[in-house]
Design a protein around this nucleic acid. Sequence first.
DNA 1: CCTACCGATCGGTAGG
DNA 2: CCTACCGATCGGTAGG
Lengths: 196, 196
Amino acid sequence: MTTYARNSRLDVVLAAERLFAQRGFHATSMRDLGRELGLHGSSLYSHITSKEDLLVEVIDRGAELFDAAAARAEQAAGSGAERLAALVRGHLDVVLEHVGAARTYLNEAHALDDQQRRRVIERRDGYERRFREAMTAGIGDGSIRADVDPRLASIFLLSILNSVERWYRPEGPLDRNQLAAEILEFALSGIGSRAR
Amino acid sequence: MTTYARNSRLDVVLAAERLFAQRGFHATSMRDLGRELGLHGSSLYSHITSKEDLLVEVIDRGAELFDAAAARAEQAAGSGAERLAALVRGHLDVVLEHVGAARTYLNEAHALDDQQRRRVIERRDGYERRFREAMTAGIGDGSIRADVDPRLASIFLLSILNSVERWYRPEGPLDRNQLAAEILEFALSGIGSRAR
DNA sequence: CCTACCGATCGGTAGG
DNA sequence: CCTACCGATCGGTAGG
């Protein structure tokens, strides 16, 4: 039995993460992807069955990374606000360590067909629910203000977190811990003075 | 002189706003665009010179709408925090009344060539600066907390505002004024209790 | 605004 | 993993 594989299937998925995240799914051709790995576009089909499938795989990997980070964060003991802080740090870890998968997951789901897109959106809703639940717990234990709407507040906080990839540069003045601290300070204390 | 125009150039731009926003620039073909207007893809070229130019025009329209709204908002008298509130309401007006132009401006600039993209990003920075300046003014007049970093806080607030199109539905339970109020409450007061 | 095209590129297959 | 393709579609032009 002869086999020609210089690259593994994982190599293909990782290259797809990079290119889908940088240029977008529709702007990335199979030939682009092949070039990234030093082989012909048509050769990719010995590793995958279609370009769509590849997108599904990248996006699912992204979803999995976020879910796993959230599961770890939820083991943090403490108040609801502290659990929320752990969720924020876990989210940033994924965004900063797996840029490609995270960006593709966050920005390219619209390229999926209806069924797959619905599935991904439901999974994303499940992730958002974990933020909501931490806030609800925080209202219960007094660490979060009682008049907060956990659904809206989760959306606002996740909007901040999911936009980080659009502007944050790790080589800039702000390190990851400072970034997390700044986001938490903004979300927990706001920017208005008492004497407003 | 005979002319065949059933649609104006503006019709083409408005159709492009819709489709570029819904499917993305690369996923929209000139034939899709023609179908939207009831004519052939090739006929569009009597109105425009290239698909790229059309994207530039849509994006510039989006930028113009945001800049104009900010200019109006800045005429609001009052504290820095109040000017910031006016900017927030103006931003939401654009996002909700010009969905297509706003979404294309916010999400499709990556499809521009380097030179155009840089120009658009610079213009976007100018818009962000207006938020920063309102915050700085607020620190001066005591309406914004003195320890706030206006640059980061502007990014966080704009992340929330620019993500609105991803989840908000006008026909839902929250009207536009309530949405603005919720965002401002989150940004100004945060969600943490004093006894955290 | 339509008809009739153009060369280039797309995702993907057959066969080795 | 390569070679040699395939039909479909792309942005765009010429000429009326």
